[in-house]
Design a protein around this nucleic acid. Sequence first.
RNA 1: GCGGUCGUAGUCUAGCUUGGUCAAGACAUCGGCCUCCCACGCCGACGACCCGGGUUCGAAUCCCGGCGACCGCACCA
Length: 585
Amino acid sequence: MSSETKTPDKFTIINELARRRGFFWQSYEIYGGVSGFVTYGFLGAKLKQNIEKKLRELFVNKLRILEIESPVIAPSKVFEASGHVDHFKEPMVECQKCKRRFRADHLLQEFAKIGESEAEKLSLKELKEAIEKHEIRCPECGGTFGEPKYFLTMFKTAIGPYSEAVGYGRPEAAQGIFVEFRRLYDMAREKLPFGALQIGHALRNEISPRQGLIRLREFTIIDLEFFFDPEEPNCFLLKDVENETLRMVLAESKLRGSEEIVEVTVKEALEKSYIKAEWQAVFMALAKKLLVDLGVPAEKQRFIEKLPWERAHYALQSFDQEVYVERWGWVEVSGHAYRTDYDLKRHMQFSGADMRVFKEYEKPVETEQTVIKPLMAKLGPVFKEEAAKVAEVLSKADPEDVEASIKKNGYYMLGEYKILPEYVEIARQKVKERGKRFVPHVVEPSFGSDRMVQFALEYAYRVKDDRSVLSFPRDIAPIQVGVYPLVSKDGLPEKALQVYKMLLDEGFMVEYDEAGSIGRRYARADEIGIPLGITVDYETLKDNTVTIRDRDSWKQVRSGIEDLPELLHKYFRWKANFEDLGKPF
RNA sequence: GCGGUCGUAGUCUAGCUUGGUCAAGACAUCGGCCUCCCACGCCGACGACCCGGGUUCGAAUCCCGGCGACCGCACCA
């Protein structure tokens, strides 16, 4: 402990509370703990589930979105295709004198004026040579650098006990969706737009994760890949959200060194092309609403545009949704990337599978095309064993070119082969095209589930009369109702247990507590954010009514036990306010 | 990974300088008593020196290593 006792900040208090009351804690504590890994206790797991449920309500059910679950481990091919094997590693050099580490490519950009894209392409050997050539020394102490080494931030493993097959732990769940695209498209009845969602663990071998739930080595990611036709980019949900406002920090402001926030409606953001894809704008609006529903006020949120060199390798435009927290300022909670057709195209290249979709024209398009038919009877004697190859290459040449050249010059040079007019038949052919094939575009909202838990806690936390209260929005509270006998005798516990069982049967998350004074039990319940407390007292034995207590106002109302199920169902679906639950007490 | 600070019950702290009747207090938890609606009071119980090695007759205390935490640097595709 440090000698000067600082008052702990909110983050510290919340983490302490989370550990003490069983929301979450660092994993493997009995072996000293390993940073970047966390275990959720009962309350935390429930809170997280409720948050994810809320996201599903908002995104999944209304939007033709298919939720799937795919593996965490993937063969190396998958992440080679996705570009992660190339991009997920950093070339590092260590100063031999002061042991500080630096990004080798960043040093070259800064001190040798080598362009960013150029610096990124250099191999370890080339980096070493460039550093030596430009005599780059440690910017901190002037020492010389050792060998550049890659730091790979993906977890690597071997698939199968005796196998050499390399596998990686996924750093995002998105690839699990892209590789299954053909089946998913099938399940979506071959209609665009549609989306696929995955909530699951992802692994990133962070260098030094030490911000609680904010940076973990194993964490829960929520990746939503939404596929659409770039020629029909309109979003059918736009009307519902076009007047929602977004607080944005644009790339152009950042370039000027400013973090000025512009507040615009979704509609304006699209009109002014702050946001390029309509779907992306809509998802951003929904993401804002989600965080508001989790208790983060709109003014504590913003969307910050990534500069080209800050963007992931797959993204054409991306925004980070950030939430303001006391300890660190603005922290990312979701990323909104326009991934275009990058991923599907790459998997198409690497796997050979056709990721294109077929789009039927309203009317078939008839076109007349020039067709070059090789006449094998002539080609054979001239080119002998090469004839088949010539014919094949010829079929790939542009027929218009071939025809034009033959008309003009009397021959066509196909590489080193001279094609004379008599070798081919030039014909016109009518072709009926019923549609075309293309690779769909993707916008991706991607949420960190653990961060949402952290932010929900941060904004739920209040202090009332020196007591900690977690004022969760009522629909994400891990436990909904506490049931208490006023005293633990005279038949009150028996009566309270009846109420408790009834509410359990109704499907509520209920807790029963008879230990300690009633005030202490209320305080305990407030600290884990139970919205309502039901107390069985001596009145109850006479007229079958109980008191209902509100966590936030500490007000109490009185109601009949038989009315509780309906009243509470309404309350938790936001169809009744606390005051509607009974008569003031 | 570097530098600084630090690691004692579930939590917060005392003890460490000067090694030895030293493992203490408060809160929380559990049991009991009290018609008890906002952490009431009283009685009782459970419960800790981060791990490993060294020095020593003897280590929570001194030394070394490891692990972990916080702050700063770097990193966060």
